[in-house]
Amino acid sequence: MSEDLIIAETRSEFGKGAARRIRRANKVPAVIYGHGNDPIHVTLPGHDTLMAIKHGGANAVLNIEIDGKVQLALTKQVQADPIKGFLEHVDFVAVKKGEKVTVEVPVHTTGEAAKETFVQIENNVVTLEAEATHIPEAIEVDIEGAEVGTQILAGQLTLPKGSVLVSDSEQLIVNITQAVSAAEVEAELAEAEAEAGIEHDAPADEAAGDEAPAEGDAPAEGSADSE
């Protein structure tokens, strides 16, 4: 949870025009839902909010001060400019200390699997129930030395204290398979192309070689060799 206090301004103007004016002032429009209350529409300082969300990760919980009262807010949806990276809009859910929330948490692998293996991440997030102010940023999975055939299920993950798995315990998270060589990939591709009836033109140098006269062929009539 971010310990920084984000000072919000309530807003009553909506629409694309109002949002553009807010962003030009280096601020970000946001809305806070939850606890049966009407949505609270606010304007937040752009840089401070961006840094707090980056620090807190996908499920960042921010301290947002609204009209002198501090509200804990769980980040639910972030819209950012794909090129410049600034925040365009943020949706939050109001939470309280001690409250349990259901969130999706990313899964990260650590270590290196055995040689000649391929590590397939079948599901890169798991759903957990956790206390709102103690949501893990990620769940780490150690694959050091894992051999071909190793499979790690959601129920085998080591969760932080206080977190409870909501995802199916049989959900496949990591699958270690035999690495495929470049030659095998090329052979499979060639076979697939053949089945699809795809033909490739011969390289230019081969085509030129086909057009050259064969050794021993008689020179064309009228050539210097025939005079």
Rank of each mutant, 00 (worst) to 15 (best):
K97T: 14
E65T: 05
E211S: 05
N124M: 11
A192L: 03
E195L: 14
E199A: 09
P219C: 07
F92I: 02
A183Y: 06
E184I: 10
K54S: 05
M51H: 08
M51G: 02
A58C: 05
I22V: 15
M1P: 03
I176Y: 12
H89T: 04
K69M: 07
A214V: 05
V185F: 03
D4R: 12
S181H: 04
A218Q: 15
T75R: 02
R24W: 08
A214I: 02
Q71V: 08
S167Y: 07
H200N: 01
D225S: 14
V107E: 00
V28Q: 04
A207I: 12
E221M: 10
V126H: 06
P45S: 00
E122K: 15
A114D: 07
E195Q: 13
Y33A: 08
V148L: 06
A194Q: 15
G145I: 08
D168V: 13
T10A: 05
S167L: 07
Q120N: 15
Q178H: 15
G98S: 10
K27R: 14
V61E: 03
T102K: 14
D210W: 07
G222C: 02
L153A: 12
L165G: 10
E184R: 11
H200G: 09
E137C: 03
S163D: 11
I64D: 00
I22D: 02
H89D: 06
V174D: 09
A182G: 01
V105I: 04
E137L: 05
V180C: 03
E9M: 10
